[in-house]
Write a protein that binds this DNA or RNA. Structure first.
Lengths: 331, 331
DNA sequence: AGAATGCATGTAACGGGTTACACAAAACGC
DNA sequence: GCGTTTTGTGTAACCCGTTACATGCATTCT
């Protein structure tokens, strides 16, 4: 590997001059600059990032912590972050936390030891005090962590209200909800949105809410039982698209026609939702946009710019597809 | 940040002794060891990986290059690699290449500058000479690069033969194939498997092969046209699961019943394949296993151990699900 | 007893890019 | 013409963990 000293020697200048040419700062005589640039090109010199990091205490690296990259919601999010950051000369290290606080801590330790410049975090478990211990720029995505950690997420409650309202609008009378885990904040927010609309319509019944754990199989099982016990249910709002697929399966296994006898709507708008038969109506999140803007906010934090607002709330949009495609019908 | 010199001063020993305690090498008096360990714990000293990397010319980091993490085949693969490596104290940097040689080169440059220890690569475009330029331990996953780059992949041709044979076994007579892009080696291998069986059965017809580009929409379009022109087709082998979903859509849009009138089988065995209605039969790859073993091989390469074989070929297994679930029927 | 070996610890160089500081020459101000 | 500022370049310290080498003492061997 060519070092800056090799270049300096070859070009008959000092390492300081080479460094100044590389970084375009300080005074360098135009002729000297050219000479050094030629040498750099000739020797194919590429500066060693590690040495630079050691002195500057920064690494041009950020970490992205997600529960599990295998969950179809996260790849797009990770891709958005990675795309944005590579443009800025940053690399991205991937951390799968499984929502395990120990793993989160482990990754934070590793990051700290490597002078990682900041992190984008999807977590319910990460708490303020832990973040403070590491004093590292952090941005929250999809789920909030603390009020003064910049956060990028959709308005889950409003989105859920819209989804539930949509079911009412197309004529559903008995609307059930498959919810995500209790400990996941956005699962609860979506439940609340559902609750708000149902309560308002005077149609809320506790037994229409089942636990799907953000999991397809669990959802299929829970919905199947629900539909058997309550065949009058004619609409289901699932807390995410994966569970909506589970609901679809449950309906299919009972010979219930979607959307004619049962309308189903999901949440997230992952690619998958448009690939199924019938195509799934869903509240679509601007995942890619949120993630690039989160990355942008992290860049600002790292460079020390003050960020104006800490909460960035996006509105999910209704994707009206086949699974809720039916005419109004009367009770 | 606490440094090794802080610890040394506090414990009244030299930095060398602290280093020896940290790394468990060299001679250290048991009492001194205890004293230093106490100090380390008390000051919560965590060594700086960057300084270590600079001296050792290694970073305990590897890169994983995939075309696009949003392609549902890759998250599991990436997860397998990351899971395995974090256990070994390595972190993983994610590289989305979009199969673009310029991006591949860019990432390799970045890795080199950071003393990245090795890379796991999924690529058709990366060529031997480029790898040689970077002389970095490299393992190929899913697609081969060169004969002396350790490779972990399934036997695509045999898998495709099995898939095609399966369609024959369940009674299909006119079997079509939706293939992936010409430039992707495994797409061609799968096509060849299909070709072999069809030729052998004396049933190969060029016009039964359509281009699906590994894309759901493209596949749906191509298959729809195929089915309109050749309504006699009663079986489809799709080059991957995503395209099989496209085929499913095409059939559905034409009112063709799957599997009764048309059997469909995919390839890969991504999670998605078991979530659809009907559930998709597919040739399932041991993705997670392949990826952890690729990571293991990379570890061996990095530590300089000789690896016995360079090619590791796995057999995909038939997942016989609803989309090919029918009795034999006669011509 | 003297040499050789093992044990324990310390000093300082090393890795490679950055930059504070020093110094010199040129340009400018009056 | 002399003081001040700007321009241009070099030297060496710095970041921090690792390790080659040196040193000193205690054993063990011959």
């Amino acid at each position: 590997m060519t070092t800056i000293r090799d270049v300096a020697k070859d070009a008959n200048v000092s390492v300081a001059t080479v460094s100044r040419v590389m970084n375009d700062n300080g005074y360098v005589n135009p002729e000297t600059r050219e000479k050094v640039k030629d040498t750099i090109a000739r020797l194919n010199y590429q500066p060693n990032s590690v040495a630079r990091s050691l002195y500057k205490k920064e690494s041009k690296t950020i970490g992205i912590m997600v529960p599990d990259i295998m969950n179809p919601y996260f790849p797009e999010l990770v891709r958005g972050v990675e795309d944005y950051l590579i443009e800025k000369g940053f690399t991205t290290i991937l951390c799968n936390t499984d929502e395990d606080p120990d793993k989160e801590r482990l990754y934070l330790d590793v990051m700290k030891q490597r002078y990682v410049d900041g992190a984008i975090v999807v977590s319910n478990t990460l708490k303020r005090d832990l973040i403070d211990q590491y004093d590292m720029p952090i941005v929250a995505l999809d789920r909030s962590i603390h009020e003064n950690v910049p956060t990028f997420m959709v308005n889950n409650t409003v989105g859920a209200e819209q989804a539930t309202q949509h079911l009412i609008d197309i004529g559903c009378k008995r609307i059930a909800h498959v919810r995500g885990p209790e400990h996941v904040e956005n699962a609860t927010a979506r439940y609340e949105g559902y609750y708000n609309i149902m309560q308002q319509a005077n149609r809320f019944h506790e037994h229409y809410v089942v636990q799907g754990d953000f999991d397809q199989k669990q959802s299929a099982k829970a919905v199947k039982q629900l539909l058997q016990e309550h065949p009058e249910v004619d609409g289901i709002f699932a807390g995410n698209d994966i569970m909506a697929l589970g609901a679809l399966k449950a309906a299919e296994s009972l010979g219930i026609k979607v959307p004619q006898e049962l309308a189903i709507i999901g949440f997230d708008g992952i690619d998958l939702s448009s690939m199924t038969i019938p195509e799934l109506s869903t509240m679509s999140q601007p995942i890619y946009e949120m993630s690039t803007q989160a990355a942008d906010a992290l860049m600002s934090l790292i460079s020390g710019e003050a960020t104006d607002e800490t909460e960035h709330i996006y509105q999910p949009t209704l994707e009206w597809r086949q699974s809720t495609d039916r005419m109004r019908k009367e009770d």
